[in-house]
Design a binder for these strands. Structure first.
Lengths: 342, 342
DNA sequence: TGTTAGCACTCGACTCATTCGAGTGCTAAT
DNA sequence: ATTAGCACTCGAATGAGTCGAGTGCTAACA
């Protein structure tokens, strides 16, 4: 059990360290933090905090920096979202408030806002409606050899793709395929659709429209694309600012990871809580040892939930990050409700 | 006028420098290059080449590196595309040869191939058909409040975008707008379309479908998007390997520039010649002082021409870069002819 | 006259010793 | 329990010294 003073010291130390990036000594704490004790006393307390594993030295006579455990304690007990300046709030409102936009634009905007306001890297995931249903499937002949496939769900997502028509396919085959899809898939929840696409549909196609089985593969890939989470990442290059100790090779692997849907899925796993922080090694990936990932979920009632995430240095200012995320999350809930409304 | 030996020395020096990255001294040239002269003689020649401005020293007693002028001379007179290994050629064939793909996929593939084979950064621009005509415009009602606009040209490009319908708009308005577009724009070359979109159409809309003028703005932006060049960039992160001397700030500006269509347009201006190289300062942008841009054009008869470009360090191996570009350019011409054919 | 061996000279890169100072832990006094 | 005082530690910065790759110049040579 920590005393009040010990908590105050730990708090100040982390605040100071996250804003300067330098190890913090007893004198600095005495001067900068409002703690009524001499540097010698603070030294004793620091020694105790180190003994408990909350802080550590970089070398035997250096100042202290927070340890993994220290950050954990800070995040779980001490940090409070910092209020944004009214200018920043206004900025967010302006960017997300007014005009009608497309869903993708909104997500993209949000990611940009997050990365600009924090100067870290932002990852945004659109609202995921677990129970959305397929409401429409169309094949639209554009000309003799191009067809557009369009997929709609009741949650408003619309996916489309143009593909070239193999010569073997006739108008009548197109109709048949469309009918099969409409008859067997439309109205079902998307996870059902995925199952049927794998099991029943290939059989039906072979039976009723054998010519079209090539085409089926294309269409299947569109369905898969529509089911995939779509990540919007902004401020990737900000990573350069807080990855000094990484060599080029690691940096490249890191960027490759950020390009890869699958890896992101592992990194950002859905969770219930409003906020969640993963610190360095908690991410189980050497690449992220000096990074932290702060994730916030936003809810759009009746339309599922989405995720906002900030990837920054372990030594980031958590209070500010929490502040930005909190404001944006609220604004986004609001914006999206409007989006679904009209 | 340079003697044969001087040319041979300049050639070797550049080859050696581009492969080692280190300043080259007289002894190295004597040992590595097949030049029948002592190091002292080579020193004399080097001194002369420096006097002419083809090479320079990094400090008073260092070896020589090529100067801007040296590179220019090398590229204009000495460099020969290096033959690719048969494995690499086969790799390219496999990636671009077989199955039917979408245009965007082909371009994306090409960019990836280029960056992987050169380990520099690749920029690919799809075939630009100067004289393509608008052949189709459709508005497809997806549901009560979403419409998809589809634009087609006779060169096979298809652009589409989904947008939300303002409430004020009725079915009949949609019809009217579609009619106006089909009547006044379809069949025209795209540059004519752009003009009319600016001049005549707004007036017609106001007259016949006043409610739809909001919608017109959206549709106009789709047209603009369809007219835009679309750059495919791959291997951005390779920049990290050859930008050691740049600070974080410059690196970020550089990446921002690569994200920006407009800036890329300035950088890569269309030209006729098969190959073109811009060396460092020739690009008129401080950010590129230590980079070179090698561009190659490819022709698809009857379907316009496109561009392949490699952005690498000024000290890149030009012969290899030329080799890769040449092979890919030929393969691409072939692939695209097939694409347009069937 | 062109080529070459020989040599003094230059300058960056590297190593090693020294200094400086921020910070610590410990002890003894309050 | 707190604090002043002090010896001690260690990284960062500074400077002297060495090494070696490379140069230019001179004089000898084919």
């Amino acid at each position: 059990m920590l005393t009040k003073r010990q908590i105050a010291i730990l708090d100040s130390l982390i605040q100071l360290y996250t804003s300067t990036g330098q190890p913090i000594g007893s004198k600095t704490i005495m001067n900068e933090a409002s703690i009524d004790a001499s540097s010698a006393t603070i030294r004793n307390e620091l020694s105790y905090l180190e003994h408990l594993g909350f802080i550590q030295k970089t070398h035997s006579s250096s100042g202290r920096i927070p340890s993994m455990r220290g950050y954990r304690y800070y995040i779980d007990h001490l940090v409070k979202p910092r209020e944004l300046t009214s200018e920043k709030i206004q900025f967010i409102n302006e960017m997300l408030g007014s005009r009608v936009q497309q869903m993708d634009d909104i997500m993209h905007q949000s990611a940009q806002l997050l990365s600009q306001l924090t100067s870290y890297t932002a990852i945004v995931l659109g609202p995921k409606a677990e129970s959305s249903r397929l409401t429409g499937f169309r094949l639209l002949a554009l000309n003799d050899n191009h067809v557009m496939a369009i997929i709609q769900t009741d949650k408003g997502t619309i996916e489309n793709q143009v593909f070239r028509l193999p010569k073997s396919i006739k108008e009548s085959d197109l109709m048949k395929v469309t009918n099969i899809f409409n008859h067997h898939l439309v109205g079902l929840p998307l996870n059902e659709v995925a199952k049927k696409l794998e099991r029943d549909i290939p059989f039906l196609i072979r039976k009723h429209a054998a010519n079209a089985s090539d085409m089926f593969l294309t269409i299947e890939s569109i369905f898969n694309a529509s089911a995939e989470d779509r990540y919007h990442i902004s401020g990737k290059m900000n990573l350069l600012d807080f990855s000094e100790d990484m060599d080029k090779k690691k940096l490249k692997s890191l960027y490759e990871l950020l390009e890869n849907q699958g890896d992101l899925n592992v990194l950002i796993n859905h969770m219930q809580s409003d906020f969640d922080v993963k610190i360095g090694e908690e991410m189980n990936n050497d690449l992220f040892n000096n990074f932290s990932l702060v994730t916030a979920t936003y809810q759009v009632s009746g339309h599922g939930s989405g995720i906002l995430a900030i990837l920054g240095p372990t030594s980031m200012s958590y209070d500010e990050t929490f502040g930005v995320l909190d404001v944006l999350r609220k604004q986004l809930t609001h914006t999206l409700l409007n989006y679904y409304l009209d």
